[in-house]
């Protein structure tokens, strides 16, 4: 395993202000994620798991603290640079598949690559290879509505990995799936992490799943305990 730090989070806080009230969701979260590492993020509902993933994924701006992705400090970047860093280095897998319903499976996987500036032909070639690797080649031209839940989630994993990210953020990726399909998707994610060396932070409520990962971060009261 390559131990180069992919993600370094230090003293991260996130406070939401609602009228005169302040909601402290994250109160100084610090941790590091190495390449090829699978880390579970556990905590009760409302503990701040999704907020932490949003901040680490550069989709939300923390109130204070630092986030470094592949050694690049995100807090000093402007919006455009953060967007570029997200595009190049981070992949997301959600509990719901979040596929664009009007696009085929292939087009959904092509999208991030085209946004990153690849030609349509290049994107289509790589997207098809990824779908083949996921066992979805025969379903490439199907729209999400015609795919099963497990197939949809595999398409969203392929999309998350399309730009060869260094960091994969997964928010309950198996939460909506039946046990067999969930196991299949988890094994696929594990294989990808081990094979590609991408670092994965996965929010989950499933302690059995967390126990199979390299380590577990528990979030409580806005802190890693």
């Amino acid at each position: 395993m390559n131990n180069a730090p992919v993600l370094h989070v230090s003293a991260l806080t996130r406070v939401y202000e609602q009228a005169e009230n302040k909601l402290h969701v994250l109160n100084g979260v610090s941790f590091t994620l190495a390449a090829g590492e699978m880390v579970a993020l556990m905590g009760q509902s409302g503990s701040g798991k999704s907020t932490l993933l949003q901040c680490v994924g550069l989709l939300d701006t923390p109130t204070s603290g630092t986030i470094e992705i592949t050694g690049r400090p995100a807090q000093s970047m402007d919006d455009g640079e953060r967007t570029a860093l997200r595009r190049e280095s981070i992949g997301f897998v959600y509990q719901a598949h979040h596929l664009l319903p009007e696009f085929s499976a292939l087009e959904n996987v092509m999208l991030p690559m085209m946004i990153a500036g690849q030609s349509r032909a290049q994107a289509a070639e790589r997207a098809m290879k990824m779908l083949e690797a996921m066992g979805l080649a025969p379903r490439a031209e199907h729209r999400p509505a015609r795919l099963s839940g497990g197939e949809q989630q595999r398409v969203s994993i392929a999309r998350a990995l399309a730009n060869r990210p260094k960091l994969l953020l997964a928010d309950e990726p198996t939460g909506n799936l039946d046990p067999d399909t969930a196991e299949h998707v988890y094994r696929m994610l594990e294989a990808i992490v081990r094979k590609t060396g991408v670092a994965m932070l996965m929010a989950t409520h499933n302690p059995d799943l967390a126990a199979r990962m390299d380590r577990t971060l528990r979030l409580k009261g806005g802190l890693i305990t």
């Binding site: 989709l59 997200r86 595009r87 979040h98 664009l100 999208l111 991030p112 946004i115 999309r159």
Partner: peptide, 16 residues
């Protein structure tokens, strides 16, 4: 809006 949020997640800028 949800689809646009998704494009943002994928790294698409407002300009794009």
């Amino acid at each position: 809006q949800n689809d646009i949020d998704l494009l943002h997640v994928m790294g698409a800028t407002d300009a794009y």
